[in-house]
């Protein structure tokens, strides 16, 4: 993943690039939901908790990156 380009004139990305992360996070969510439901024991529960935390961790990482690398000059509501 590259740093955010300030210029809007960037070539469109192929569909694979757009959907890779959402699909990976979606599959992790599905795995997390099912592993606790079907497994119910130690390792499956731990895997479920891990898999379901990853989307949250990725979200926090993206937010930190956005606000640490390019300190907001405009401020505003956010």
């Amino acid at each position: 993943m590259n740093a955010v380009s300030p210029s809007p004139v960037v070539t469109p990305r192929p569909s694979v690039a757009i959907w890779l992360w959402p699909i990976v996070l979606g599959l992790l969510t599905v795995f997390g939901l099912l592993s606790a439901l079907l497994g119910q024991h130690g390792i499956w529960l731990a895997l479920s908790w891990t898999a379901l935390s990853i989307p949250l961790i990725v979200t926090v990482a993206c937010l930190l990156r956005a606000w640490c690398r390019t300190p907001s000059v405009k401020g505003g509501q956010s």
Binding site: V4, P8, V10, A17, V58, A66, S78
Partner: peptide
């Protein structure tokens, strides 16, 4: 919307 943006980008330096 994401055609021109990498995943997870949050533009904080422009319009809110």
């Amino acid at each position: 919307f994401m055609k021109r943006l990498p995943f997870g980008s949050v533009r904080t330096d422009r319009a809110s």
